[in-house]
């Protein structure tokens, strides 16, 4: 069986006023290839302003259901590790179009458990169903300077949009012509 490489979660920023949100994942041998793959898999269309890839094993994730028991807090082992920045992600909705895990902010912590505890205090919200925390150091981000070559080409490919195929007016016209004949 061939290895498909490591798994990376992909975060995509679609508009200036939107946070990075989880689009799915890709497999790749390293972060750089993961970013290239993520671009091919998730940015065949506008709009994308920035992409992040994160090795999945570096993500500490808990659903609200998993948070009900406090066992995860006690597993706080690596507390002598240096303090660093952790990015916090939440899933805030339950309908199909809004259930994405999205970036909400950052906390300083020295372990995944501490990062999550601080995230729970810093970004309290009753409507959160999933929490992810990730050390910022492991996030591989697209560079602003690369944006034109990575994301701009999708803008000219208007034929990827269904609006480029105005078929409904033709069908409506045919239908009314048919109805006139029938009368």
């Amino acid at each position: 069986m061939d290895s498909q490489g490591q798994k990376y979660q992909v975060f995509e920023k679609e508009r200036a006023d939107l946070a990075h949100r989880n689009a799915g994942s890709v497999h790749a041998p390293d972060a750089e290839m993961a970013l290239e793959n993520a671009r091919d898999v998730f940015v065949r269309r506008p709009n994308c302003l920035s992409l992040w890839v994160v090795p999945e094993r570096a993500i500490f994730s808990k659903t609200v259901q998993e948070l009900r028991d406090n066992a995860w807090r006690e597993a706080d082992a690596a507390s002598d590790a240096p303090t660093e920045t952790w990015l916090v992600f939440q899933k805030q909705g339950q309908t199909a179009r809004e259930t994405f895990v999205a970036h909400v902010g950052a906390v300083a912590a020295c372990s995944p458990q501490q990062a999550l505890s601080r995230a729970l205090e810093t970004f309290p919200n009753k409507n959160v169903f999933v929490w992810w925390v990730v050390p910022e150091r492991v996030i591989f981000k697209s560079e602003d300077a690369d944006a034109p070559s990575m994301f701009a080409p999708a803008h000219t490919k208007t034929y990827r949009n269904h609006l480029a195929y105005p078929v409904e007016p033709i069908m409506r016209e045919l239908k009314s012509a048919q109805e006139m004949l029938d009368e």
């Binding site: 689009a23 799915g24 199909a96 259930t99």
Partner: peptide
């Protein structure tokens, strides 16, 4: 469900 939302948007182009 999330994968389907993405796919449906793109497939509308395929159908049309």
């Amino acid at each position: 469900s999330r994968a389907m939302v993405r796919i449906c948007t793109e497939e509308t182009f395929h159908k049309k």
